[in-house]
Amino acid sequence: MKARFIKENSGLPLIMPTLVVMALFSVLPLIEGFRLSFTDSNLLNKGEHWIGLQSYVKLAHDPIFWGAFLHSLVLTASVVVLQLVLGLILALALKQEVPGIRFVRSIIMASWVIPVAATAIIFQFMVEPGYGFYNIVLHALGIKANNFWFGDLQLAFPVIILLHLWRNVPFYGIAFLAAIQAIPHTTYEAAEIDGAGPWRSFVHVTVPGVRNMMIVMVTIHVLWTFNNFDMVYLSTGGGPVYATEVLPVYLYLQAWQSYSVGYASSIGVVMFVVLMIYFVVYIRIYERRET
């Protein structure tokens, strides 16, 4: 009995330390977050009371929350879809063996490794009215754009999307490139012998070849984008007038500016539930496909 247990679980000592740290710093905090969402906990006054579903009722009547909820969904969906399409186009270009392509391949992912705090500064500088790079260029082209894009009600949200694309599209491009390069040459040759043109060999050889990579990239980036806090917080702070407010930023402001930890936690629980639904649906579809 004991011997069998040891034999079946001999990997346990190796993964135990990681599991303990994950339990302490992810699982337990998540459970505690759930509990807090049913209390009126506040960082300023000690002692908390059980208030049941009151925070959630308040959420349901909170227009800023619903705005942030919508923004988070739209941002995640549009960013992931655009990244997928643009990443694929980039990969198809990077795949061509033309002079100079190695140089482009080697530097293109630089935007992915720099801190988001730097990204926010760089773009604030690029769009400065008057002396920002974009405005200098636009001015030279005869287009007048004198407002600060991050502070513009109409432009702020698209600019946030642009920032996400700036950071992640090269990562998609290089990842898809790796998947495309792993497709054996003979498959392309066979398609050509069968009379397939560039379009058909793209649809029937390239796309199936990168399918797995696409699934992984999309899954990870849905989670990362939906939970992403710093891109919005550091560039617009959720403004102007909540035009770019997303759930993680709203939660952060509730917790660390208003100190309403209980209310903030209820926002976090909603975020978790949304991702949970996505995850369950995703696994269902994935499993059905496999069988």
């Binding site: 993964i15 599991l19 992810s26 905090p29 990870i220 806090f229 993680p248 903030a264 978790f272």
Partner: peptide
Amino acid sequence: AYIMGVFSMQMFPVVLLLIPI
């Protein structure tokens, strides 16, 4: 289950976890 568990931890909202942490 372990592997799925580790992967799904990326779904936990870090902003929420930070409050108890």
